[in-house]
Structures are given as C-alpha cells and as structure tokens.
Amino acid sequence: MSTKTVNQRAWLFVLPVVLLVAFNAVIPLMTVVNYSFQETFGDNVFFWEGTKRYEQELHSERFHAALGRQLAFTSIILVIEVPLGVAIALAMPKRGPWVSVCLVLMALPLLIPWNVVGAMWNIFALPEIGLLGRTINAIGIDYNFTQSPVAAWFTTVLMDVWHWTSLVVLLAYAGLCSIPDAYYQAAKIDGAGAWATFRYIQLPKLKRVLTIAILLRFMDSFMIYTEPFVLTGGGPGNATTFLSIDLVKVALGQFDLGPAAAMSLIYFMIILAVCWVFYTLMMRGEEQ
C-alpha cells in the first residue's frame, strides 16, 4: 500500500496567476454580469431586473442594425483579405535577397498604432486635401466619406484591408515556406499545373494556418473600434456604427450601464459561438 503525500504548498505556485486572472478577467466580467441583471441608482443599491435587459436588447432595432452592419463589414473584409493575402503570399519570393524586403514591407502596416491608422486614413481620404480623396474626385467620381455612407464604407473597408491583409500574408507565407520542395517536384512529375498544385498541395497544407488567420481576422474585425471611430466617428449618421462603437455610445454617451452590459455579453457570446463553430468545422477529421 502506498500513501499519497498531499502537498498543499503547490497552491502557492498557482496563486499569482489566479490573482492576475481574477483582477483582469473574472472580476470585471462578473461586474458586467451584475450590471446586466440589476438596476442601480448609485450608493450600491441594486434592484433585480432578471433577463429584461437581454430581451430588450435582442428585440431592439438599434442593436439589430449595428449587428447587421458588423456582420456585413466582417464578411466583406474576410472575403477580400483572405484570398488577397494568400495571393500575395504565393507571389512573394521564397528565397533570395528580396525576401526580407517583402517581409518588412508587409509587416509595416501591422506596426502602426490603430488610432494613427484611423487618423492617417482620415487625412488621406479627405476630399479637399487628402491624396486619395482628391484623386477620386479628380477622375470624376463624387466622393466624400463624411457625407456619403457608400464612400464611408468604401474608405473603412479599404483602410482595414490595407491595415490587416499583411497578417494573412505573413501567416500564409510561413505556411507556404514549410512545404518541402519535394512536394512541388512530385506535383510536377504527376503533371499538375499551377492551379492543381495550389488546389491539391498548397491549399491543404495551408488549411491549419488559414483557419488561424480567419479566426484572428474574424475576432479582430468583429471587435473593430478605434480605426472607424477615428476615421468616421460611426457616421455619416449611423452608417459605420459597428457594434463596439454603438456599445460605447450606450455605455459612455448615454450612461445606460444595464443595457450596455447586456449588449456586451450578447456581443461576447456571438464571437465565442462563431469562433467555436468555425474552428470545430475546420478541424473536423484533422485528428490523426
């Protein structure tokens, strides 16, 4: 018979992490949960509201509109950035002196602070003084992103593509570089052309990396705040008011903490659910 020594001191090793996670995740999250179920008028007096906030939020047209814009925005940028990113990665040299030049150029947009990106594009796209704004107007298209919703969307999408396609490029490039030359030779010997090589060798080998790239781009774009806030402020009207911009308006503009709390939790659940479903689908049949 053996006796098991229980060493309670092991808890001490976990304690720092427990404290850290408690203060930066669990406690703030539970505070939000509190606010979403209870009404308060200050002085730490709370009234139980139940799920009323959630019901209101889920039936609110304003929320539906923001969610709709958010889904549209995320879909558009995913449809553009993922194929574009893969295409650029395929076109990049695999060896030689140009590799580092390409990598640095690609990494540049990722290094710029988000609000700076917003400010840059704001100035760049101004119809009176911006290079982009003036050029578009000069070729005869009436373009003003502070007045036209279409122009505002165009500018926001273009900004996001400029800012984030690089991330897909770098991930896809890393994936492509990990495919041994022998695979390409085998494909050539089989008589496969460029498309077949992409379809049957590169794409399957990129599957995991692209799954991660799509997940990251989905989460980031679904939470986008800083850049459109600086660029358009959510306007014109509500044209580019995405979920997080709307959330800030409710929480800080109107100081409706309860509805804002319910909204942020629904928001959070949507991201979690979409990521989980997507990841499960992509990784099905991958376990070997």
């Binding site: 022998a182 695979y183 030779q185 085998a186 050539k188 010997i189 008589g191 496969a192 052309g193």
Partner: peptide, 14 residues
C-alpha cells in the same frame, strides 16, 4: 516534366 513519362519517389513520404 509533364510531357515526359516519368515517375519519381522521394526520400520523404510524399
């Protein structure tokens, strides 16, 4: 290569 009738097996399992 694709116009020649060649088959090749590599050291790695491809």
């Amino acid at each position: 290569v694709r116009k020649r009738n060649v088959a090749m097996v590599h050291q790695q399992f491809i």
